[in-house]
Design a binder for these strands. Structure first.
Length: 208
DNA sequence: GTATGGATGTTCT
DNA sequence: GAACATCCATACT
């Protein structure tokens, strides 16, 4: 078993601008620590919900649900969408600004057997392809809302070190397009993805 | 591969 | 009462 060198993202290195953060997070690693073991996956798709964005949950100010959006960059904002699926977001910009990056899809790296169990399916490609599926695979719910993702803990964000699985691959080109599943401010190119990755959600036509 | 509809909790009008 | 940052099963091309 290869030793995996990996450390948390430094808050000071996160781009302040939300769209820049969304791009920055492509290729980084989400780590989930569970009693049964560790799950991790490479981020292959994100969306930015920026300042003044009518599609963003912070657009109308702070509420009991969305207060984590207003934390300083690098904290988890988790909410329930459509009463069915949890969504994992990374808060962005300065404290007091209600913006975030939605993590939409992961390429599974570690803990694949646990992910299969959490999802109740076998197919590797579908384990975390889509934000709701991702949350189910990593067993993410509201109990993780507000967590600091720049420190090792039950859920954190990591940078690859040498020796990591997938490390030898050339860094994927980053594509950019419109966000999925929204109606307000829908034309802005605020979705980022690893071009050509089979683990990106949505139709293949959106991943060229 | 694409298209459709139902389940579901929370927020807002 | 409607909208919603979704998923899944089913039907169809």
């Amino acid at each position: 078993m290869t030793m995996i060198a990996r450390h948390p993202l430094a808050r000071s290195e996160l781009p302040n601008d939300t769209a820049a953060l969304a791009r920055y997070l492509i290729g980084k690693v989400v780590v989930r620590e569970l009693p049964e073991g560790r799950i991790s996956g490479r981020v292959v798709e994100t969306e930015a919900y920026v300042v003044g964005d009518a599609a963003g949950h912070g657009y109308r100010g702070m509420t009991a649900r969305n207060r984590s959006l207003f934390l300083e960059a690098g904290h988890a904002y988790v909410y329930l969408a459509y009463g069915v699926s949890y969504m994992l977001n990374v808060s962005s910009e300065m404290q007091g600004v209600g913006t975030a990056v939605l993590i939409r899809a992961l390429e599974p790296l570690e803990g694949i057997a646990i992910m299969r169990r959490n999802r109740g399916i076998e197919r590797l490609r579908d384990l975390a392809r889509g934000p709701g599926r991702l949350a189910m695979a990593l067993r993410i719910d509201r109990s993780l809302d507000g967590l600091d993702l720049c420190r090792e803990g039950p859920l954190w964000l990591a940078l690859d070190g040498p020796g990591l699985a997938g490390d030898a691959e050339a860094p994927a080109e980053i594509g950019q397009g419109t966000r999925i599943g929204i109606s307000k401010d829908a034309d802005r190119p605020l979705r980022f993805y690893a071009r050509g990755s089979p683990f990106v959600s949505g139709p293949r036509s959106l991943n060229r």
